[in-house]
Design a binder for these strands. Sequence first.
RNA 1: GCAGAAGUGGUGGAAUUGGUAGACACGCUGGACUUAAAAUCCAGUGGACAGAAAUGUCCGUACGGGUUCAAGUCCCGUCUUCUGUACCA
Length: 953
Amino acid sequence: MSKYTFRSIEEKWQNYWAQNQTFAAKNDAVGQPKFYVLDMFPYPSGAGLHVGHPLGYIASDIYARYKRHKGFNVLHPQGYDSFGLPAEQYAIQTGQHPSKTTQENIARYREQLDRMGFSFDWQREVRTSNPDYYRWTQWIFIQLYDSWYDTVQDKARSISDLIAIFEQAGSGALNEDLNAVLMQNLPEELTSFNAEQWQGFTPEQKETILSEFRLTYLAESEVNWCPALGTVLANDEIVNGVSERGGHPVVRKKMKQWSMRITAYAQRLLDGLENIDWPEPLKESQRHWIGRSQGASVRFDIKGHQGQIEVFTTRPDTIFGVSFLTLAPEHELVAALTTPEHKEAVEAYVTASAQRSERERMADVKTISGVFTGAYAIHPLSGVQLPIWIGDYVLAGYGTGAVMAVPCGDQRDFDFAKHFDLPIPNIFKDISIENEAYALKDPCIIDQSDFLSGLNYAQACLAAIKALEDCGHGHGTINYRLRDAVFSRQRYWGEPFPVYYKNGMPQMIDPEHLPIVLPEVDAYLPTEDGDPPLGRADQWAWDTEAHCVVAKELIDNKTVFPLELNTMPGWAGSSWYFFRYMDPNNQSEFASAQALDYWGSVDLYIGGSEHATGHLLYSRFWVKFLFDRGFIGVDEPFKKLINQGMILGESAFVYRSADGKQLVSAGRIKDYDAQILQSVHCDVAMVSLTNELDLEQFVAWRPEYNSAEVITEADGTFKVKREVEKMSKSKFNVVNPDDICDQYGADTLRLYEMFLGPLEQSKPWSTAGITGVHGFLKKLWKLYHSGDVESFCVSEQRPSSDALKVLHKTIKKVNADIQEFSFNTSVSTFMIAANELTALKSNQREILEPLAVLIAPYAPHIAEELWALMGHKQSIAAVAYPEHDEKYLVEATKTYPISFNGKTRFTLELAMDLSKEQIEAAVMADERTIAQLQGGTPKKVIVVPGKIVNIVG
RNA sequence: GCAGAAGUGGUGGAAUUGGUAGACACGCUGGACUUAAAAUCCAGUGGACAGAAAUGUCCGUACGGGUUCAAGUCCCGUCUUCUGUACCA
């Protein structure tokens, strides 16, 4: 009866927690502090969970349980990021509806998660593909569409405010930044208008202007289009200019797509990083992604031409070092500028670089290429004529797609100038630019630069900007690398847009008629015309009278209109899900003000670092937007973030000869020419802990080796070679947590995953050490049991001071460890405690009750069982976490009374813990120090066994 | 190239943040129990040298310097490995 039967214990308590709603969070806990612990929710893939997935969940669960013991009202929910590509790919191949696949996968995930004893509040589960959920994703989209960013108040406001401004005062009421927006993309007649002119614009003209301000807008943007596959590909789906799957050619194609104006928030996204507790590397990569650089915008007039070329530079101090301009091949002025005699060469160059993929261009940085346009720009300060070149080292996507080339100060400009034999004026005093450009800003003086000569970098920048502003050819500015985010996907399995088109203009559907539910289609592929999969839906038109989705054939462009065919990207649903957990069943709002106010932001967020510039940036953007518009009260979603490391797999390789006729054991490969041997993955399930392969199983799995000659080790075994790789189905190195739970139990799995090493570090999975952790749990169990029959036995006697010391030492360490997220060392601490208490044969209630609570966050099942055996009726989850008492830890203090020569007493503060005997021996042994000791009471005495090293004070 | 993190026994990893390096665990070796195996328990386990033994001495935290009574920890330089990112003007 009383062996540690983990299977039945774990099942019992998992059922108990589910039935009693032990971990339900309250939205109205008066007077109780709240704590919100969140995991990055998973995409439910068909492969199920492997042992790497739970690592972060175990850590967050320990913390959540710990906080409950500490008296917090803890919100610890879980859900699914259930829109996504794999389910759609599977649908394309099999015709099975992605929603069915997704539901099956979720069921499997849930089963696996339940076995590990997580304290999730499942009442609050959310799924991004659920219409009740994406209804609010659509709602947020509409709010973004109905908003603009006011750079004066530095926040998003309703678009109706902007319309009111235009109606009252026209575009003149806008500040400089906002006016610049008007100048950028609009036809000239719309760039400046007064109130009457605004009133006179057609609705289309008004909309064209407004869409320059809306936080989500339709724009022509470039995509990677693969005609053969009939779909758009992401950058990482393209390898060497052809599609990863099938190797079909990919072209860049402009398509009308929704974009998110995240650039409006660039500065605030940067500033916000200062106030959140995130790992520095992750903040660093967000900073880099946002890529703020300060400099100047300079406009060059063009000889014999109307327009201007605008460039961005971080070095306005080098303005007199400019010897030519370079445009990106895609620059809009290229065609207009090029003189007839250079037309042919320029066109050839532009076509050639258009055919090179972006990746190719980036990879190939060494080759210098370019072509002269025949046109000249006028230097705004000196009036000198500067040749205008085209070069593909200038990127269309950064800055203005044009640079002022300063060969003496920039290595790329220098190389370009050398290659095409362009002048390289030196504007740095006493610095040689014979062989390379001088790119440093600091210890140099500007020379040969008119009024800038003699100034240093900072002075020259200010003076140059002032001069440019005075002559109307530039101004100081800040440039960001961050681009607006394309928000349309030509896919089926994503949120439909709440948008229909009236005369080609997008219209939002009234939020009260949401959700717009994903329609049925006959296949999950694009249409023959290249429309996205939603183009196949029959029921896909909007009836503006009945306010519902109707059949496409009813479209009459009077009351029934076509709906948007794109869907939203994966990050749409994941950018706000953490708010939905607060009030998951709300039918009238995405969450109630009361719930949002109570829970605020996520106190602790645990997940992988791969989301640094995706999910974690977009979420911050949406949260700041929702904050601006007054829907929520916080402007950062995640106060503290921890990246758990990845658990890697240990792949196993079998060596075979190239013709497959021989299999060679790992220890014998040195006898063979390495050239002719190949390694192939084999399933780790067929390999023992000593790397021995079960050949029978292997041959059954791979019958092609049925007749192969097997070269074994001397002892007749066949060994594989191990290598650490990412865990993946295709590498046959996946370890399923279910198997571990079957063999050792969930508590062992939880402790072992923590024991493997620091949470934030990546580490290979190896089952080798798991028996140690399992043995510890058995030892713990035995502490509460006695005798040969191992019956439950806890003594009511007072424990010894040694036992109390062990307990309080453990309490102190574990409390400190949890607060620092060093879960690995607290597992060791538990093991030490169990060893010491076993040695002391200490089984008193006063020791064993706190011990059970202490371990409950880590190994909740066994803790609950022991707690119940000790006669408690309520779950251990509600018990206060033990606090240590210093009085049991006397030896940890560093103050010792010392007497020698029979009479004198001193109180010494020591640099390390030593016994009284050791200190006295040291004092007596060191005659040199006795005089010093007699002179007063030293502050600090450095003692190592046997001698005193130093006395301070 | 740039940025960030790291380098400790056969292995995973500890080290109170400057105080006896190698906790804890795996593995290995020996022992107890057993007909035997498994399980369990006990002991040993960084290296070298000396000793029958307890024990002692020296060397040891990637490498080379430095600061300090004292350095895995702090400073300078070098090497290596990961992880991002990249013609960013």
